[in-house]
Nucleic acid binder design. Structure first.
Length: 416
RNA sequence: GCGGGCGUAGCUCAGGUGGUUAGAGCGCCAGAUUGUGGCUCUGGAGGCCGUGGGUUCAAGUCCCAUCGUUCGCCCCA
């Protein structure tokens, strides 16, 4: 038997329906905030991500799926690992900056990583990007929308964590403070954090290594390096969230692995999924546009939600009422198939789902009808075919009546 | 990229210290019930024990490799 590609999963039945439901509800819910769907390609130039994510990011160093290049020798094609950079690329080439545009996207992303619970090599994101507005209310509304969407899906057990990275000046100042602090106590750091000190000092703050914890506790806070402008911006957001009754935790240690973030960053986490507890994460990324060649920064904020993680949370409690089961139609022998097919087509025109059972013997067909979840069996044997009638059997009570096709339509309508 | 657990029937899993023909439950098939499912009874099919190599008179069992899976590290929207 051929294995599936590592880190990919087949979905069928209720899981597939739930996956699709999440993607559909995303489009419906987010359009209520004026977000319009944008569909960008799964294939992009590697350059797009190398420029935007920073070449120290793990995503670039070891997690990209690269495709064998055919024509363009010096440019590599990759499967997209995230959605923000492609949306910004599309915005810059098809829209007129700094016009405010709001996009939502949904689709598969790819990262070559070791699979575990809630982490696959092909996974789906639902994401939003609001590009062209630096108003604090853009952040507030975007965050409220994220929480609202999870609630809309029936998820309530999560926590909103929030922090600010400040503007470039704040972040630069803080990085210096932090590097000098950690350099002073370098010998006490874990090996990983020593490495981070050189490449991505902010990341030390969310190290899980036990030996790092006391040093992190004592570390200077980013808050103390903020410029007045950055401080005011963040204060507007936190005070407004409080006013709106949205609970949040100001996590001073929350940082980002990607270079393009500034000001507000946030994560929505759960403790129900083990190590991969981030359901949704995002932030402001005013610098991204310039990395892609814009002459000035373009204010932007977005988030992305892990569809599989959300699905795992919903799976136990979700009731699949989206698709009513198809009614089973049983031709008793081959001579009745044509009459059965005609009836099926008639009923389908009335909007009913009909599945004609062709395989197996008669008793197997009845068994199959039950296991498919059909509440009734529609039966056509030689007698029914000759008299142009249908026998309708209620599979829970066992009652059976013979009636005309017109009466079947009425019968099914009262059932539904 | 690093570490631990697990791969046996369609599914869920048993198979002390190696030992003849590898088991159970559920499901499936047949019959009791030749146009009718569920309950019951009787019978049956179904296994390169993930794959490759090694040790041994003998390997599902021990060793090595590999693939897959799972949990964690790392990383991440």
């Amino acid at each position: 038997m051929l294995n599936q590609v590592r880190g990919t999963h087949d979905l069928w039945g209720d899981s597939a329906d739930l996956h699709t439901t999440i993607l559909e509800q995303a489009q419906i819910y987010l359009s209520g905030f004026g977000y319009k769907e944008i569909i960008t390609p799964i294939l992009e130039w590697e350059d797009l991500f190398e420029r935007t994510l920073g070449n120290t990011a793990d995503i670039i160093r070891k997690e990209l799926f690269r495709l064998v290049s055919r024509g363009d020798k010096d440019k590599e094609v990759v499967l997209r690992p995230e959605g923000t950079a492609p949306v910004m690329r599309a915005y810059l080439s098809h829209f007129m900056p700094p016009q405010h545009e709001k996009f939502m996207y949904r689709g598969p992303m790819f990262r070559y990583d070791r699979p575990q619970k809630g982490r696959q090599r092909q996974f789906y994101h639902v994401g939003v990007e609001s590009i062209g507005s630096d108003h604090p209310w853009t952040e507030i509304e975007t965050i409220a929308m994220a929480l609202g969407f999870l609630n809309h899906l029936g998820i309530h057990d999560f926590q909103l964590e929030l922090n600010t990275l400040g503007d470039e000046e704040s972040r630069h100042a803080y990085t210096n403070v932090l590097v000098s602090y950690f350099s002073g106590c370098q010998s006490g750091l874990s090996a990983e954090s020593k490495h981070r000190l050189l490449h991505n000092p902010l990341r030390i703050l969310d190290s899980k290594a036990p030996e790092d914890q006391p040093l992190i506790q004592q570390a200077p806070l980013l808050q103390d390096s903020l410029t007045d402008v950055a401080r005011d911006h963040f204060h507007t957001i936190t005070s407004t969230l409080s006013e709106l009754g949205i609970p949040y935790v100001h996590n001073h240690k929350l940082v980002r692995g990607l270079d393009y973030y500034s000001h507000t960053i946030f994560e929505i986490t759960t403790d129900k999924l083990g190590a991969q507890g981030t359901l949704l994460a995002g932030g402001r990324y005013d610098k991204l546009a310039m990395l892609l060649g814009a002459k000035k920064p373009i204010p932007a904020i977005g988030w992305a939600m892990g569809v599989e993680r959300v699905r795992l949370l919903m799976e136990s409690s979700w009731k699949n009422n989206a698709s009513t089961p198809a009614y089973a139609l049983i031709p008793l022998d081959d001579s009745c198939i044509k009459a059965s097919f005609d009836l099926a087509q008639t009923l389908r025109k009335e909007g009913f789902s009909i599945t004609m059972l062709l395989e197996g013997k008669v008793n197997q067909k009845f068994k199959r009808a039950v296991s498919l979840g059909s509440p009734i069996a529609l039966i056509i044997g030689p007698d029914e075919a000759a008299s142009q009638t249908v026998s309708v059997k209620d599979l829970s009570s066992g009652e059976q009546k013979t009636m005309s096709p017109q009466d079947v339509i009425e019968h099914l309508q009262t059932q539904a």
